Amino acid sequence: MATFVLLLNYVRPLTEVDALISQHKAFLDAHYEAGHFLLSGRKEPRTGGVILARAESKAAIEAIVQQDPFAIAGVAQYEIVEFVPTMSATELRTFLS
């Protein structure tokens, strides 16, 4: 499994983002349930969000983020950063490669 930081950047007004929040949350819930998403939240100030994710490959995570209603509607763009975890807090050691 590969590990990723997904950085969402809003590119449309917050009113357009807010109109899609319930669909975006359903997307997040589905991928938490599938084991892809580990941690997520909004940026402060509210210019986007951050997701810590795992998937088989970068292609797999790219396919996942294309399903996000934010991406489909063009209100947010994703930056995908793959990284290899080598150190962690004790409670996160299961994610070390």
Rank of each mutant, 00 (worst) to 15 (best):
V84C: 04
T15G: 05
A26F: 00
L20E: 04
M1I: 11
V81A: 06
A55L: 02
F83D: 10
P69T: 08
I21D: 02
E82C: 04
V17I: 00
H31G: 05
Y32M: 04
L38H: 09
A19C: 03
P13N: 08
A30C: 02
P45N: 12
A2V: 01
D18G: 02
V11R: 02
F70I: 02
D18E: 14
T86W: 02
Q67G: 02
I61S: 04
Q67W: 00
A26D: 13
T86P: 01
I61A: 06
K43A: 03
T86G: 09
R12Q: 15
A63V: 00
R93H: 05
A89S: 13
T86V: 13
I51C: 09
I64S: 01
V81G: 00
L20G: 05
E44Y: 14
A73Y: 11
A30I: 01
S97P: 06
L14R: 12
G41H: 12
A26W: 00
A53C: 09
V50Y: 14
V5F: 12
T3I: 14
D29P: 03
L28T: 11
V75M: 15
P13M: 05
R42M: 06
F37V: 08
M1T: 13
E82Q: 15
G74L: 08
T94S: 14
V17G: 08
L6Y: 03
P45S: 08
L7V: 13
I21T: 13
N9Q: 11
L8D: 08
G49F: 15
L8K: 07
S88M: 02
P45E: 09
L38N: 03
E62N: 10
A73H: 15
Y10I: 00
L6Q: 02
E16N: 08
V75Q: 15
T90P: 07
H36S: 12
L6M: 03
Y32L: 10
T90D: 15
R93Y: 00
E44V: 10
V17E: 05
R93T: 14
A34I: 11
I72T: 10
A55M: 03
D18T: 00
T90N: 11
D18F: 14
L96M: 02
R12F: 01
A60V: 02
S97F: 09
V5W: 12
N9V: 01
I80H: 11
F95S: 01
Q66H: 08
E82H: 10
A55S: 13
Q23T: 06
L7G: 04
K43I: 05
F70E: 08
G35V: 15
T3C: 06
F95V: 07
Q23C: 11
S88Q: 07
M87F: 13
A55T: 05
E79L: 12
R54I: 13
Q67E: 15
L7Q: 07
F27R: 04
V11Y: 02
I21Y: 03
R12K: 15
F83C: 03
A53F: 11
A59K: 11
I64H: 01
A34R: 15
V5T: 11
S97T: 13
T15Y: 01
H36Y: 08
V65I: 11
I72C: 04
R12T: 06
E79Y: 01
Y32G: 01
A63T: 03
S57N: 11
L39M: 14
G74F: 07
A19Q: 05
R93S: 10
I64K: 00
A55P: 07
E44R: 12
I61P: 09
A76N: 07
L96N: 00
K58S: 08
E82V: 11
T90S: 14
P13S: 05
V81S: 06
Q66I: 00
A89E: 11
